[in-house]
């Protein structure tokens, strides 16, 4: 083996003939054999030289010829006129099922799972994308929307729209909080360890939450009767977005559930507390609530403020994107540790 060093960029060494021969007959000492093995993984020329040396030995040569014949027969039987890659894709992990018997694998080719129809796959994707959608949150969303419409039209409750708008930005937060984390997702440990876990999965689920809640809440908001002074149906969209992105950014430090609770509490303080303070007897009247809501979301200044906040939080989230790869509460006393210790 030549061990002289060539400058960076050139190969430091290649396997020479004597070394191949000694490796082939098994007399090469271990450390040199390791070097050869790692080198051969990367260098095709040496790989083929070492293979030739092994073929030349008395014991391995006939065996290699034998296996070659068996392999080519297997392959010829297996895929007449079909690309091997396509076979593998359809069979999925089937090849792994029978490590020792290729014949069992060959039988597996005939039993291809029927590929699911498009609606079926879509339904599965939606089901997987939103743990929040199919749980308590989905029900809560429907109850709020139905309740708002019922109060406004059935009971003639004038403040329905104001109360609805005070609640609307917080609803997606609850969905996000219930979308990702050890407490919300029974598959959390597995999905967090998967390559597509972490922020990517959280964003997909957040999209599912927003995709359902934004159109629904906006439509219901537009349906409710609008007394003067209450902001328009679309005014809550930017605050809602900013609060959601803020939850995600905060969630990178504290976990989504805590972050959702904190942001929702912040919103409640910003809207309800001043409204309660202005009210004469402590209970905010619809007019005061509407006025306070208007201060928070109406007008170009407030809206651009929310937009800037959303951008700011999105930037923070991008900076902290790796944080979701590790469970935020994976420390002493965390859920995972409790599981491990129980």
């Amino acid at each position: 083996m030549k061990r002289e060093q060539v400058g960076p960029g050139g190969p430091a060494w290649h396997v020479d003939e004597a070394m191949s021969r000694r490796y082939a007959d098994g007399s090469l000492p271990e450390p040199d054999a390791w070097s050869l093995e790692k080198h051969v993984e990367a260098c095709g020329r040496c790989a083929s030289a070492v293979s030739a040396a092994v073929r030349a030995t008395g014991t391995a040569g006939p065996l290699l010829e034998d296996v070659r014949g068996a392999l080519l027969r297997t392959v010829a039987e297996e895929a007449p006129g079909e690309g091997a890659g396509a076979t593998e894709r359809k069979r999925g992990a089937g090849a792994r099922r029978s490590p020792l018997r290729p014949s069992a694998g060959r039988r597996g080719v005939a039993v291809r799972p029927a590929s699911a129809s498009l609606p079926g796959r879509l339904a599965r994707t939606v089901w997987a994308a939103g743990p929040a959608l199919r749980g308590a949150w989905g029900v809560a969303l429907l109850v709020v929307c139905a309740g708002a419409v019922a109060l406004a039209y059935g009971a003639g409750f004038l403040a329905a729209r104001s109360v609805f708008f005070a609640l609307a930005p917080v609803l997606p937060l609850a969905g996000v909080a219930l979308s990702y984390g050890p407490y919300a997702d029974p598959m959390y440990e597995i999905s967090a360890a998967a390559p597509s876990g972490g922020l990517r999965l959280l964003l997909i689920r957040t999209t599912a939450v927003l995709g359902v809640s934004l159109p629904l809440l906006t439509a219901v908001g537009a349906l409710l009767p609008a007394p003067p002074g209450v902001p328009g149906a679309a005014a809550w969209l930017l605050p809602g977005l900013a609060l959601t992105v803020g939850t995600l950014a905060l969630g990178s430090c504290t976990g989504c559930r805590t972050a959702g609770a904190l942001v929702a509490a912040g919103w409640a303080f910003a809207v309800l507390l001043p409204a309660a303070a202005h009210a004469p007897n402590g209970a905010p009247t619809p007019a005061v609530l509407a006025e306070q809501l208007g201060r928070c979301v109406s007008g170009s200044a407030a809206q651009s403020g929310w937009a800037a906040a959303a951008l700011c939080c999105a930037g923070l989230l991008a900076l902290r994107r790796r944080a979701f790869d590790f469970a935020p509460d994976h420390g002493p006393g965390s859920y995972l540790n409790r599981l491990e210790n129980s």
């Binding site: 034998d66 296996v67 392999l71 392959v75 091997a84 890659g85 593998e88 020792l100 290729p102 694998g105």
Partner: peptide
């Protein structure tokens, strides 16, 4: 021998 043959059968199936 079995591992060798099985490895190349896998190569055939999953070269994609």
């Amino acid at each position: 021998r079995e591992v060798l043959q099985d490895t190349f059968v896998t190569v055939w199936r999953s070269a994609g």
